[in-house]
Design a protein around this nucleic acid. Structure first.
Lengths: 333, 333
DNA sequence: TGCTTAAATGTAAGCGCTTTCACAAAGTGT
DNA sequence: ACACTTTGTGAAAGCGCTTACATTTAAGCA
């Protein structure tokens, strides 16, 4: 691999000049620029980006930490981040945090050790203080789907409370009053927000629901199945079940069917996230759209603007969820 | 951030000694090692991995190129790669190739420019020659789900032909003889292999199928829907449809239902890949397991052994698909 | 004790870039 | 013509490490 030195030699200029034409931030005479470019082409020169990083103290890489690399939710987010960042010539280094505090911290340390210029984090186990501290210590951080007081505009959030509200409101407007709710793990912030929205809608419609219709799920299909089984075992009647995500809604629908209940004739089901899969289920799932790809793209843009381009132009960091009506919700008689 | 120099100063040793205790490949006296370790801890020293990379000509990072970052198939693969590689302290840089030749080449260039120690590729648009050339020019490459003559053991493959065979054999054994086939894009190697397996099974059972029952799909749900629509529009009867992947099988099932056909009473459906989603569909999809996570892990291990540990121990690079029986396939009367 | 050999450590030369600084060349305005 | 900017360029000092080589120290043995 040719080095900058060989290029400078062939072009008959100094190292500095070659570097200048590469970076394009200083003026170079047309004559030398042409020579350098020709020499580069002839030698098939590619700058060594590691050397560039060391000298410039900028690695052109950003770390992306998600809970899991699989799963439709993160897939779209990652896709958004990667697309935007690569278009800007930045590398993205991925890591999985597995929703576990030690693992998340470990992953963050790992990304920092690679000197990422910034970190895009979707974490739920780590504390707000930890994130704040991280940022204070000089690692630019943007957090997805979580609001951290003090991190300000670098939190790319969905209004989860509103999502929860919209979901349940839609169910209520269809006439349902006996509404079961399958939440995610309650230690997660977004789970509590969605639940809060649910309760707000209930209150608004003057609807009271017994505690036994609240089940804490695990965000997985299995959890949905388990929740539905428990719900069915109880005598407490219900005509609809609102789920805190689509996977669990899937489980609920499958379990309903296994118990000879038709969705939506016998039970209506509401999801959350609008994961790709929800379009393919039977019946097609009515859900709340979580624009994860869009948010990933926005996170990437935040990094581009704030870290690489220094244009502190304001970005949209609060996204609004929307209702996606499909077939799993039906008006009650 | 403290540098190695400050550590050496504080510990009262030379730079080289500090470097030695870090790398642990040369003997250092216990006394000095202890001092150095203490100094490191006191200064909260973290080696600058960029500088290490430049000096050692090893970046400890491997590039991972997949067609798309979303989608269950790649998700599991990536997850396997990341898990294994991070455990070994290696960074994974991801990129998406979008099954487009220019885009794939671009992504590969991009990863090389970051001086990845090796590349793990899931590509389908780029030619064998290109990959061979890449490898010859000094970029260690491991290819997933594709066999490239000359790359030998660094191809992590699934026996797609066998998968295609198993799928169709299972359908035939259920008594079906009028079997439609929805393939993926025929320019993809694995698509042709799966089809070859399909035809072998057909031949083995002495079953002849008219051309009109072969439809070229796009590997997406929409393609499955379109294929099924076309099949239904034709007068040519069929009792089962074998699909080259699960997404399309989903589309086929949805389309069947929209036309008041019950799966599997009226039509049986067979998938391929055993994507997570296939467990959640209704009916649960009978399919062929593609151990993508396992293959990702194997690719990562190949890199670990061949690039970082230089133990050329043989690895399992040819995976066998297996049949996963669920509910979308039924014995014909 | 003196000599040989091995082990531990330090010195210094890179790795391939960026960037500051100094300086020469070429314009400007008066 | 002069002093005074402006513009283009090169020399050289890093960036924070690794590692070949030189040097010192310790150990082994006759």
């Amino acid at each position: 691999m040719a080095t900058i030195y060989e290029v400078s030699e062939l072009a008959g200029v100094s190292l500095a000049t070659v570097s200048r034409v590469m970076n394009g931030n200083t003026r170079v005479s047309e004559a030398k620029r042409t020579k350098v470019l020709a020499a580069m082409k002839e030698l098939n020169y590619r700058p060594n980006s590691i050397a560039q990083s060391l000298a410039s103290n900028c690695t052109n890489s950003v770390g992306l930490l998600v809970s899991e690399l699989y799963g439709p939710f993160f897939g779209e987010m990652m896709s958004g981040v990667e697309g935007e960042l690569r278009a800007a010539g930045k590398h993205v280094i991925v890591a999985a945090g597995h929703s576990d505090e030690a693992s998340e911290k470990d992953a963050i340390e790992f990304l920092i050790s690679r000197k990422c210029d910034a970190l895009i984090l979707h974490v739920d186990a780590v504390s707000d203080e930890y994130l704040l501290d991280l940022n204070k210590k000089g690692t630019p951080v943007v957090v997805i789907n979580r609001y951290v007081e003090g991190l300000g505009e670098s939190c790319i959030c969905l209004n989860n409370e509103l999502g929860g509200y919209l979901a349940t409101k839609a169910v209520l407007e269809m006439g349902h009053r006996q509404i079961a709710y399958v939440s995610g793990p309650m230690w997660k912030m977004d789970v509590r927000e969605r639940l809060a929205g649910h309760k707000r809608a209930l209150k608004e419609f003057g609807c009271e629901v017994p505690d036994s219709l609240y089940i804490e799920g695990d965000f997985h299909e299995e959890g949905g199945v388990a929740a539905m089984q428990q719900l069915l075992k109880q005598k407490q009647p219900f005509t609809a079940v609102v789920c805190a995500n689509d996977e669990m809604a899937c489980g609920v629908m499958n379990c309903a069917r296994d118990n000879d209940l038709d969705v939506p004739s016998d039970v209506s089901v509401m999801g959350f996230d609008n994961v790709i899969m929800s379009r393919y289920t039977f019946p097609h799932l009515t859900t709340i759209d979580f624009p994860s790809g869009e948010m990933g793209r926005m996170a990437a843009n935040w990094v581009r603007h704030h870290i690489y381009e220094d244009k502190k132009k304001p970005l949209n960091t609060l996204f609004e969820p929307t209702l996606v009506l499909r077939d799993s919700l039906r008006k009650i008689a």
